[in-house]
Write a protein that binds this DNA or RNA. Structure first.
Lengths: 122, 122, 122, 122
DNA sequence: GTGGTCTAGACCACA
DNA sequence: GTGGTCTAGACCACC
Protein backbone atom coordinates (compact mmCIF):
# COMPACT_ATOMS: atom_id res chain seq x y z
CA UNK A 1 0.00 0.00 0.00
CA UNK A 2 1.43 3.34 -1.07
CA UNK A 3 0.04 6.39 0.62
CA UNK A 4 0.94 9.86 -0.45
CA UNK A 5 -0.20 13.30 0.48
CA UNK A 6 -0.06 16.67 -1.19
CA UNK A 7 -0.24 19.46 1.39
CA UNK A 8 -0.69 22.04 -1.36
CA UNK A 9 -3.83 20.38 -2.65
CA UNK A 10 -6.97 22.16 -1.61
CA UNK A 11 -8.65 18.92 -0.59
CA UNK A 12 -7.96 18.26 3.09
CA UNK A 13 -5.21 15.80 3.91
CA UNK A 14 -7.51 13.49 5.81
CA UNK A 15 -9.70 13.39 2.71
CA UNK A 16 -6.80 12.48 0.48
CA UNK A 17 -5.95 9.59 2.78
CA UNK A 18 -9.57 8.50 2.93
CA UNK A 19 -9.91 8.46 -0.84
CA UNK A 20 -6.76 6.47 -1.42
CA UNK A 21 -7.61 3.76 1.06
CA UNK A 22 -11.26 3.58 0.11
CA UNK A 23 -10.24 3.15 -3.53
CA UNK A 24 -7.76 0.44 -2.67
CA UNK A 25 -10.37 -1.44 -0.68
CA UNK A 26 -12.98 -1.09 -3.41
CA UNK A 27 -10.60 -2.13 -6.17
CA UNK A 28 -9.39 -5.11 -4.19
CA UNK A 29 -5.81 -3.91 -3.85
CA UNK A 30 -6.35 -4.08 -0.10
CA UNK A 31 -7.92 -7.44 0.72
CA UNK A 32 -10.25 -7.84 3.71
CA UNK A 33 -8.36 -8.67 6.86
CA UNK A 34 -5.21 -6.88 5.81
CA UNK A 35 -3.72 -5.01 8.76
CA UNK A 36 -2.99 -1.34 8.28
CA UNK A 37 0.20 0.22 9.55
CA UNK A 38 -0.15 1.89 12.94
CA UNK A 39 -1.39 5.45 12.93
CA UNK A 40 1.87 6.73 14.36
CA UNK A 41 3.85 5.07 11.63
CA UNK A 42 1.72 6.54 8.87
CA UNK A 43 1.85 9.87 10.63
CA UNK A 44 5.64 9.87 10.70
CA UNK A 45 6.13 8.60 7.17
CA UNK A 46 3.80 11.16 5.64
CA UNK A 47 4.89 13.97 7.88
CA UNK A 48 1.39 14.77 9.06
CA UNK A 49 -0.13 14.85 12.51
CA UNK A 50 -1.41 11.67 14.13
CA UNK A 51 -4.76 13.34 14.48
CA UNK A 52 -5.04 13.95 10.78
CA UNK A 53 -4.40 10.27 10.09
CA UNK A 54 -6.81 9.27 12.82
CA UNK A 55 -9.46 11.47 11.34
CA UNK A 56 -9.16 9.65 8.02
CA UNK A 57 -9.18 6.24 9.73
CA UNK A 58 -12.28 7.18 11.70
CA UNK A 59 -14.16 8.15 8.55
CA UNK A 60 -13.07 4.91 6.93
CA UNK A 61 -14.34 2.88 9.85
CA UNK A 62 -17.62 4.77 9.90
CA UNK A 63 -18.12 4.00 6.23
CA UNK A 64 -17.36 0.32 6.67
CA UNK A 65 -13.93 0.15 5.07
CA UNK A 66 -11.97 -0.49 8.25
CA UNK A 67 -12.35 -2.25 11.54
CA UNK A 68 -10.33 -1.12 14.51
CA UNK A 69 -9.50 -3.29 17.46
CA UNK A 70 -8.22 -1.17 20.30
CA UNK A 71 -4.84 -2.42 21.32
CA UNK A 72 -4.25 -4.46 18.19
CA UNK A 73 -4.65 -2.09 15.29
CA UNK A 74 -6.81 -1.47 12.26
CA UNK A 75 -7.81 -3.98 9.60
CA UNK A 76 -9.53 -3.88 6.25
CA UNK A 77 -13.15 -4.81 6.87
CA UNK A 78 -14.80 -7.79 5.18
CA UNK A 79 -16.94 -6.65 2.31
CA UNK A 80 -19.74 -8.32 0.47
CA UNK A 81 -19.16 -8.48 -3.29
CA UNK A 82 -22.50 -6.93 -4.25
CA UNK A 83 -22.03 -4.32 -1.59
CA UNK A 84 -18.61 -3.55 -3.00
CA UNK A 85 -19.99 -3.24 -6.51
CA UNK A 86 -22.72 -0.90 -5.28
CA UNK A 87 -20.20 1.38 -3.66
CA UNK A 88 -18.04 1.48 -6.77
CA UNK A 89 -21.08 2.34 -8.87
CA UNK A 90 -22.29 4.98 -6.45
CA UNK A 91 -18.93 6.67 -6.34
CA UNK A 92 -18.50 6.70 -10.10
CA UNK A 93 -22.06 7.75 -10.71
CA UNK A 94 -21.68 10.82 -8.55
CA UNK A 95 -18.52 11.83 -10.38
CA UNK A 96 -20.13 11.17 -13.75
CA UNK A 97 -23.21 13.20 -12.92
CA UNK A 98 -21.08 16.16 -12.02
CA UNK A 99 -19.11 15.88 -15.21
CA UNK A 100 -22.11 15.42 -17.46
CA UNK A 101 -23.97 18.31 -15.85
CA UNK A 102 -20.90 20.43 -16.36
CA UNK A 103 -20.62 19.41 -19.99
CA UNK A 104 -24.27 20.17 -20.61
CA UNK A 105 -23.95 23.57 -18.95
CA UNK A 106 -21.02 24.31 -21.24
CA UNK A 107 -22.97 23.18 -24.29
CA UNK A 108 -20.60 20.35 -25.09
CA UNK A 109 -21.94 17.52 -27.25
CA UNK A 110 -22.00 13.92 -26.08
CA UNK A 111 -19.60 12.78 -28.80
CA UNK A 112 -17.11 15.50 -27.99
CA UNK A 113 -17.12 14.54 -24.33
CA UNK A 114 -16.79 10.81 -24.99
CA UNK A 115 -13.86 11.26 -27.32
CA UNK A 116 -12.12 13.53 -24.81
CA UNK A 117 -12.52 10.88 -22.16
CA UNK A 118 -11.40 8.05 -24.36
CA UNK A 119 -8.20 9.85 -25.31
CA UNK A 120 -7.38 10.31 -21.63
CA UNK A 121 -7.82 6.66 -20.77
CA UNK A 122 -4.37 5.21 -21.37
CA UNK B 1 -30.62 34.21 -16.62
CA UNK B 2 -31.68 32.02 -13.77
CA UNK B 3 -29.48 32.05 -10.71
CA UNK B 4 -30.06 29.74 -7.81
CA UNK B 5 -28.21 29.04 -4.63
CA UNK B 6 -28.24 26.25 -2.07
CA UNK B 7 -26.93 27.46 1.29
CA UNK B 8 -26.70 23.90 2.61
CA UNK B 9 -24.40 22.82 -0.17
CA UNK B 10 -20.79 22.41 0.82
CA UNK B 11 -19.53 24.52 -2.07
CA UNK B 12 -19.34 28.17 -1.05
CA UNK B 13 -22.15 30.39 -2.21
CA UNK B 14 -19.92 32.78 -4.08
CA UNK B 15 -18.54 29.75 -5.93
CA UNK B 16 -22.02 28.57 -6.88
CA UNK B 17 -22.73 31.97 -8.37
CA UNK B 18 -19.39 32.10 -10.13
CA UNK B 19 -19.86 28.68 -11.71
CA UNK B 20 -23.34 29.39 -13.01
CA UNK B 21 -22.43 32.63 -14.66
CA UNK B 22 -19.13 31.40 -16.02
CA UNK B 23 -20.90 28.41 -17.58
CA UNK B 24 -23.57 30.57 -19.13
CA UNK B 25 -20.97 32.88 -20.63
CA UNK B 26 -18.90 30.00 -21.99
CA UNK B 27 -21.91 28.22 -23.44
CA UNK B 28 -23.21 31.40 -25.06
CA UNK B 29 -26.41 31.54 -23.05
CA UNK B 30 -25.20 34.90 -21.87
CA UNK B 31 -24.08 36.85 -24.93
CA UNK B 32 -21.30 39.45 -24.68
CA UNK B 33 -22.72 42.83 -23.76
CA UNK B 34 -25.64 41.44 -21.83
CA UNK B 35 -26.20 43.51 -18.67
CA UNK B 36 -26.30 41.74 -15.33
CA UNK B 37 -28.88 42.67 -12.71
CA UNK B 38 -27.56 44.97 -9.96
CA UNK B 39 -25.83 43.30 -7.05
CA UNK B 40 -28.46 44.46 -4.58
CA UNK B 41 -31.20 42.88 -6.70
CA UNK B 42 -29.42 39.54 -6.92
CA UNK B 43 -28.68 39.73 -3.22
CA UNK B 44 -32.33 40.21 -2.33
CA UNK B 45 -33.73 37.63 -4.71
CA UNK B 46 -31.36 34.90 -3.60
CA UNK B 47 -31.38 35.84 0.05
CA UNK B 48 -27.63 36.10 0.31
CA UNK B 49 -25.39 38.88 1.49
CA UNK B 50 -24.37 41.60 -0.97
CA UNK B 51 -20.80 40.95 0.03
CA UNK B 52 -21.11 37.39 -1.20
CA UNK B 53 -22.53 38.47 -4.54
CA UNK B 54 -19.90 41.14 -4.95
CA UNK B 55 -17.10 38.67 -4.31
CA UNK B 56 -18.47 36.40 -7.02
CA UNK B 57 -18.75 39.34 -9.43
CA UNK B 58 -15.20 40.43 -8.65
CA UNK B 59 -13.89 36.97 -9.34
CA UNK B 60 -15.78 36.86 -12.61
CA UNK B 61 -14.36 40.21 -13.63
CA UNK B 62 -10.86 39.13 -12.66
CA UNK B 63 -11.24 36.03 -14.84
CA UNK B 64 -12.50 38.05 -17.80
CA UNK B 65 -16.14 37.01 -17.79
CA UNK B 66 -17.56 40.37 -16.74
CA UNK B 67 -16.82 44.04 -17.21
CA UNK B 68 -17.84 46.76 -14.83
CA UNK B 69 -18.73 50.17 -16.21
CA UNK B 70 -18.89 52.63 -13.39
CA UNK B 71 -22.38 53.94 -12.97
CA UNK B 72 -24.01 51.53 -15.39
CA UNK B 73 -23.39 48.18 -13.80
CA UNK B 74 -21.87 44.91 -14.99
CA UNK B 75 -21.92 43.44 -18.47
CA UNK B 76 -20.86 40.18 -20.01
CA UNK B 77 -17.40 40.72 -21.45
CA UNK B 78 -16.63 40.22 -25.12
CA UNK B 79 -14.85 36.96 -25.68
CA UNK B 80 -12.64 35.70 -28.45
CA UNK B 81 -13.90 32.43 -29.92
CA UNK B 82 -10.62 30.53 -29.60
CA UNK B 83 -10.22 31.90 -26.10
CA UNK B 84 -13.69 30.70 -25.26
CA UNK B 85 -12.98 27.26 -26.64
CA UNK B 86 -9.76 27.05 -24.64
CA UNK B 87 -11.54 27.80 -21.43
CA UNK B 88 -14.24 25.23 -22.10
CA UNK B 89 -11.60 22.63 -22.85
CA UNK B 90 -9.55 23.47 -19.79
CA UNK B 91 -12.53 23.24 -17.53
CA UNK B 92 -13.74 19.94 -18.94
CA UNK B 93 -10.25 18.48 -19.03
CA UNK B 94 -9.77 18.98 -15.33
CA UNK B 95 -13.07 17.31 -14.55
CA UNK B 96 -12.31 14.46 -16.92
CA UNK B 97 -8.89 13.84 -15.45
CA UNK B 98 -10.39 13.54 -12.00
CA UNK B 99 -13.01 11.11 -13.21
CA UNK B 100 -10.63 8.96 -15.21
CA UNK B 101 -8.14 8.79 -12.36
CA UNK B 102 -10.93 7.77 -10.06
CA UNK B 103 -12.11 5.09 -12.44
CA UNK B 104 -8.60 3.72 -12.78
CA UNK B 105 -8.13 3.66 -9.01
CA UNK B 106 -11.34 1.71 -8.70
CA UNK B 107 -10.27 -0.74 -11.36
CA UNK B 108 -13.08 0.15 -13.73
CA UNK B 109 -12.57 -0.59 -17.44
CA UNK B 110 -12.73 2.07 -20.11
CA UNK B 111 -15.73 0.47 -21.78
CA UNK B 112 -17.67 0.29 -18.53
CA UNK B 113 -17.01 3.94 -17.81
CA UNK B 114 -17.94 5.11 -21.30
CA UNK B 115 -21.20 3.21 -21.29
CA UNK B 116 -22.07 4.61 -17.87
CA UNK B 117 -21.48 8.10 -19.15
CA UNK B 118 -23.41 7.57 -22.35
CA UNK B 119 -26.45 6.32 -20.47
CA UNK B 120 -26.40 9.44 -18.33
CA UNK B 121 -26.31 11.78 -21.28
CA UNK B 122 -30.02 12.15 -22.05
CA UNK C 1 -31.22 24.19 25.15
CA UNK C 2 -29.32 23.13 28.21
CA UNK C 3 -26.07 21.32 27.64
CA UNK C 4 -24.09 19.78 30.43
CA UNK C 5 -21.04 17.61 30.63
CA UNK C 6 -19.62 15.30 33.22
CA UNK C 7 -15.88 14.90 32.78
CA UNK C 8 -15.82 12.06 35.30
CA UNK C 9 -18.25 10.00 33.29
CA UNK C 10 -16.59 7.20 31.38
CA UNK C 11 -18.50 8.05 28.19
CA UNK C 12 -16.47 10.53 26.13
CA UNK C 13 -17.46 14.16 26.35
CA UNK C 14 -18.17 14.46 22.64
CA UNK C 15 -20.53 11.48 23.03
CA UNK C 16 -22.36 13.12 25.90
CA UNK C 17 -22.90 16.21 23.78
CA UNK C 18 -24.00 14.15 20.81
CA UNK C 19 -26.55 12.24 22.85
CA UNK C 20 -28.07 15.33 24.40
CA UNK C 21 -28.54 17.15 21.13
CA UNK C 22 -29.70 14.10 19.21
CA UNK C 23 -32.31 13.48 21.91
CA UNK C 24 -33.50 17.06 21.82
CA UNK C 25 -33.84 16.94 18.05
CA UNK C 26 -35.67 13.62 18.12
CA UNK C 27 -38.00 14.69 20.91
CA UNK C 28 -38.79 17.96 19.18
CA UNK C 29 -37.28 20.16 21.90
CA UNK C 30 -35.00 21.51 19.18
CA UNK C 31 -37.12 22.38 16.16
CA UNK C 32 -35.70 22.17 12.64
CA UNK C 33 -34.02 25.39 11.62
CA UNK C 34 -33.06 26.36 15.15
CA UNK C 35 -29.56 27.84 15.17
CA UNK C 36 -27.08 26.32 17.56
CA UNK C 37 -24.76 28.47 19.61
CA UNK C 38 -21.30 28.89 18.06
CA UNK C 39 -18.80 26.18 18.83
CA UNK C 40 -16.55 28.61 20.67
CA UNK C 41 -19.38 29.69 22.91
CA UNK C 42 -20.32 26.15 23.82
CA UNK C 43 -16.67 25.37 24.33
CA UNK C 44 -16.22 28.21 26.79
CA UNK C 45 -19.45 27.64 28.68
CA UNK C 46 -18.81 23.95 29.21
CA UNK C 47 -15.12 24.34 29.81
CA UNK C 48 -14.12 21.87 27.15
CA UNK C 49 -11.95 22.24 24.09
CA UNK C 50 -13.38 23.59 20.86
CA UNK C 51 -12.25 20.41 19.16
CA UNK C 52 -14.28 18.27 21.48
CA UNK C 53 -17.39 20.27 20.69
CA UNK C 54 -16.60 20.18 17.00
CA UNK C 55 -16.22 16.45 17.13
CA UNK C 56 -19.74 16.11 18.51
CA UNK C 57 -21.14 18.55 15.97
CA UNK C 58 -19.47 16.67 13.15
CA UNK C 59 -21.05 13.39 14.23
CA UNK C 60 -24.40 15.12 14.48
CA UNK C 61 -24.11 16.48 10.97
CA UNK C 62 -23.03 13.10 9.62
CA UNK C 63 -26.08 11.51 11.18
CA UNK C 64 -28.43 14.12 9.77
CA UNK C 65 -29.26 16.04 12.93
CA UNK C 66 -27.42 19.22 12.03
CA UNK C 67 -26.60 21.30 8.98
CA UNK C 68 -23.60 23.56 9.02
CA UNK C 69 -23.19 26.58 6.82
CA UNK C 70 -19.62 27.73 6.86
CA UNK C 71 -19.52 31.31 7.94
CA UNK C 72 -23.03 31.39 9.36
CA UNK C 73 -23.20 28.62 11.90
CA UNK C 74 -24.97 25.32 12.58
CA UNK C 75 -28.68 24.66 12.40
CA UNK C 76 -31.01 21.85 13.34
CA UNK C 77 -31.68 19.91 10.16
CA UNK C 78 -35.18 19.43 8.77
CA UNK C 79 -36.45 15.98 9.60
CA UNK C 80 -39.22 13.93 8.12
CA UNK C 81 -41.72 12.78 10.73
CA UNK C 82 -41.58 9.09 9.80
CA UNK C 83 -37.83 9.29 9.65
CA UNK C 84 -37.83 10.84 13.10
CA UNK C 85 -40.07 8.11 14.45
CA UNK C 86 -37.81 5.46 12.96
CA UNK C 87 -34.78 6.89 14.65
CA UNK C 88 -36.53 7.08 17.99
CA UNK C 89 -37.61 3.48 17.64
CA UNK C 90 -34.18 2.30 16.56
CA UNK C 91 -32.50 4.01 19.45
CA UNK C 92 -34.94 2.69 22.04
CA UNK C 93 -34.95 -0.78 20.54
CA UNK C 94 -31.21 -1.10 20.86
CA UNK C 95 -31.33 -0.05 24.49
CA UNK C 96 -34.22 -2.38 25.19
CA UNK C 97 -32.52 -5.34 23.58
CA UNK C 98 -29.50 -4.83 25.75
CA UNK C 99 -31.60 -4.61 28.86
CA UNK C 100 -33.77 -7.61 28.06
CA UNK C 101 -30.76 -9.74 27.17
CA UNK C 102 -29.19 -8.73 30.44
CA UNK C 103 -32.32 -9.58 32.36
CA UNK C 104 -32.56 -12.97 30.69
CA UNK C 105 -28.91 -13.72 31.41
CA UNK C 106 -29.53 -12.89 35.05
CA UNK C 107 -32.60 -15.11 35.15
CA UNK C 108 -35.00 -12.28 35.91
CA UNK C 109 -38.67 -12.80 35.06
CA UNK C 110 -40.58 -10.55 32.73
CA UNK C 111 -42.96 -9.40 35.44
CA UNK C 112 -40.13 -8.51 37.79
CA UNK C 113 -38.43 -6.45 35.13
CA UNK C 114 -41.58 -4.63 34.07
CA UNK C 115 -42.48 -3.68 37.61
CA UNK C 116 -38.95 -2.42 38.24
CA UNK C 117 -39.20 -0.22 35.18
CA UNK C 118 -42.66 1.07 36.00
CA UNK C 119 -41.58 2.13 39.46
CA UNK C 120 -38.71 4.13 37.97
CA UNK C 121 -40.92 5.99 35.54
CA UNK C 122 -42.03 9.02 37.54
CA UNK D 1 -20.13 -22.92 30.36
CA UNK D 2 -20.01 -21.36 26.93
CA UNK D 3 -17.73 -18.40 26.55
CA UNK D 4 -17.58 -16.41 23.37
CA UNK D 5 -15.81 -13.28 22.30
CA UNK D 6 -16.19 -10.81 19.47
CA UNK D 7 -12.93 -8.96 18.81
CA UNK D 8 -14.68 -6.43 16.57
CA UNK D 9 -17.07 -5.40 19.30
CA UNK D 10 -16.32 -2.06 20.87
CA UNK D 11 -16.55 -3.44 24.41
CA UNK D 12 -13.13 -4.66 25.52
CA UNK D 13 -12.56 -8.38 25.38
CA UNK D 14 -11.80 -8.70 29.06
CA UNK D 15 -15.10 -6.98 29.73
CA UNK D 16 -16.99 -9.40 27.51
CA UNK D 17 -15.52 -12.30 29.48
CA UNK D 18 -16.23 -10.63 32.79
CA UNK D 19 -19.85 -9.97 31.94
CA UNK D 20 -20.56 -13.48 30.76
CA UNK D 21 -19.15 -15.14 33.83
CA UNK D 22 -20.61 -12.66 36.27
CA UNK D 23 -24.04 -13.18 34.73
CA UNK D 24 -23.73 -16.95 34.90
CA UNK D 25 -22.74 -16.78 38.54
CA UNK D 26 -25.55 -14.40 39.44
CA UNK D 27 -28.16 -16.41 37.57
CA UNK D 28 -27.03 -19.66 39.13
CA UNK D 29 -25.92 -21.25 35.87
CA UNK D 30 -22.50 -21.51 37.45
CA UNK D 31 -22.96 -22.97 40.92
CA UNK D 32 -20.57 -22.09 43.76
CA UNK D 33 -17.61 -24.42 43.78
CA UNK D 34 -17.67 -25.07 40.05
CA UNK D 35 -14.11 -25.13 38.68
CA UNK D 36 -13.24 -22.87 35.78
CA UNK D 37 -11.12 -24.11 32.89
CA UNK D 38 -7.45 -23.08 33.11
CA UNK D 39 -6.59 -19.69 31.73
CA UNK D 40 -4.38 -21.14 29.01
CA UNK D 41 -7.25 -23.33 27.81
CA UNK D 42 -9.67 -20.43 27.60
CA UNK D 43 -7.00 -18.36 25.92
CA UNK D 44 -6.45 -20.94 23.20
CA UNK D 45 -10.09 -21.74 22.58
CA UNK D 46 -11.12 -18.12 22.24
CA UNK D 47 -8.01 -17.02 20.42
CA UNK D 48 -7.24 -14.22 22.84
CA UNK D 49 -4.15 -13.42 24.82
CA UNK D 50 -3.65 -15.08 28.21
CA UNK D 51 -3.10 -11.65 29.66
CA UNK D 52 -6.57 -10.63 28.59
CA UNK D 53 -8.14 -13.69 30.18
CA UNK D 54 -6.16 -13.24 33.37
CA UNK D 55 -7.26 -9.63 33.68
CA UNK D 56 -10.88 -10.71 33.42
CA UNK D 57 -10.34 -13.41 36.03
CA UNK D 58 -8.62 -10.97 38.37
CA UNK D 59 -11.50 -8.56 38.11
CA UNK D 60 -13.96 -11.35 38.81
CA UNK D 61 -11.98 -12.39 41.85
CA UNK D 62 -11.75 -8.83 43.08
CA UNK D 63 -15.54 -8.52 42.78
CA UNK D 64 -16.13 -11.76 44.67
CA UNK D 65 -17.28 -13.97 41.82
CA UNK D 66 -14.24 -16.24 41.76
CA UNK D 67 -11.75 -17.74 44.17
CA UNK D 68 -8.26 -18.82 43.24
CA UNK D 69 -6.76 -21.80 45.04
CA UNK D 70 -3.07 -21.90 44.34
CA UNK D 71 -2.20 -25.01 42.40
CA UNK D 72 -5.77 -26.07 41.70
CA UNK D 73 -7.11 -23.18 39.62
CA UNK D 74 -10.17 -20.97 39.90
CA UNK D 75 -13.59 -21.79 41.31
CA UNK D 76 -16.91 -20.05 41.51
CA UNK D 77 -17.07 -18.35 44.89
CA UNK D 78 -19.77 -19.16 47.41
CA UNK D 79 -22.40 -16.45 47.48
CA UNK D 80 -24.97 -15.44 50.04
CA UNK D 81 -28.50 -15.41 48.64
CA UNK D 82 -29.35 -11.88 49.73
CA UNK D 83 -25.97 -10.71 48.50
CA UNK D 84 -26.66 -12.33 45.15
CA UNK D 85 -30.06 -10.69 44.93
CA UNK D 86 -28.56 -7.32 45.73
CA UNK D 87 -26.06 -7.61 42.94
CA UNK D 88 -28.71 -8.65 40.45
CA UNK D 89 -30.85 -5.70 41.47
CA UNK D 90 -27.99 -3.24 41.32
CA UNK D 91 -26.99 -4.35 37.87
CA UNK D 92 -30.50 -4.25 36.48
CA UNK D 93 -31.27 -0.96 38.16
CA UNK D 94 -28.39 0.77 36.48
CA UNK D 95 -29.46 -0.53 33.08
CA UNK D 96 -33.06 0.43 33.73
CA UNK D 97 -32.16 3.95 34.80
CA UNK D 98 -30.27 4.47 31.59
CA UNK D 99 -33.13 3.19 29.51
CA UNK D 100 -35.81 5.18 31.32
CA UNK D 101 -33.76 8.37 31.17
CA UNK D 102 -33.30 7.80 27.47
CA UNK D 103 -37.00 7.22 26.94
CA UNK D 104 -37.86 10.39 28.84
CA UNK D 105 -35.35 12.40 26.85
CA UNK D 106 -36.93 11.12 23.66
CA UNK D 107 -40.39 11.99 24.90
CA UNK D 108 -41.61 8.40 24.89
CA UNK D 109 -44.56 7.53 27.13
CA UNK D 110 -44.39 4.91 29.85
CA UNK D 111 -47.00 2.72 28.17
CA UNK D 112 -45.17 2.80 24.84
CA UNK D 113 -41.94 1.79 26.48
CA UNK D 114 -43.48 -1.03 28.52
CA UNK D 115 -45.22 -2.52 25.52
CA UNK D 116 -42.03 -2.36 23.48
CA UNK D 117 -40.22 -4.24 26.22
CA UNK D 118 -42.94 -6.80 26.66
CA UNK D 119 -42.96 -7.63 22.97
CA UNK D 120 -39.21 -8.22 23.09
CA UNK D 121 -39.44 -10.63 26.02
CA UNK D 122 -40.12 -13.92 24.25
C1' DG E 1 -18.14 37.06 13.28
C1' DT E 2 -18.57 31.86 11.73
C1' DG E 3 -16.88 26.91 10.87
C1' DG E 4 -12.83 23.74 8.77
C1' DT E 5 -8.41 22.03 9.22
C1' DC E 6 -4.10 21.18 11.30
C1' DT E 7 -0.17 20.76 14.75
C1' DA E 8 2.31 18.99 18.78
C1' DG E 9 1.99 17.50 22.48
C1' DA E 10 -0.45 14.63 26.52
C1' DC E 11 -2.90 10.79 29.19
C1' DC E 12 -5.60 6.64 29.39
C1' DA E 13 -7.37 1.87 28.32
C1' DC E 14 -6.51 -2.31 25.94
C1' DA E 15 -3.80 -6.46 24.21
C1' DG F 1 3.06 -1.94 21.60
C1' DT F 2 -1.82 -0.36 19.90
C1' DG F 3 -5.88 3.02 19.33
C1' DG F 4 -9.16 6.68 21.89
C1' DT F 5 -9.64 11.04 23.81
C1' DC F 6 -8.44 15.60 24.96
C1' DT F 7 -6.04 20.23 25.24
C1' DA F 8 -4.43 24.77 23.65
C1' DG F 9 -3.14 26.89 20.50
C1' DA F 10 -2.87 28.30 15.19
C1' DC F 11 -4.25 29.59 10.23
C1' DC F 12 -7.52 29.71 6.57
C1' DA F 13 -11.97 30.34 3.95
C1' DC F 14 -16.54 32.10 4.10
C1' DC F 15 -20.25 35.41 5.23
Amino acid sequence: MRLSVNPNDKTPIYRQLYDQIASDVLSGVLAPGTPLPPIRTVSKELGVSMITVRSAWEMLERDGYLLTRAGSGCFVAPINETHRQNKVDARLSAAIDTLVDDAKALGVEKETLLSMIESRFL
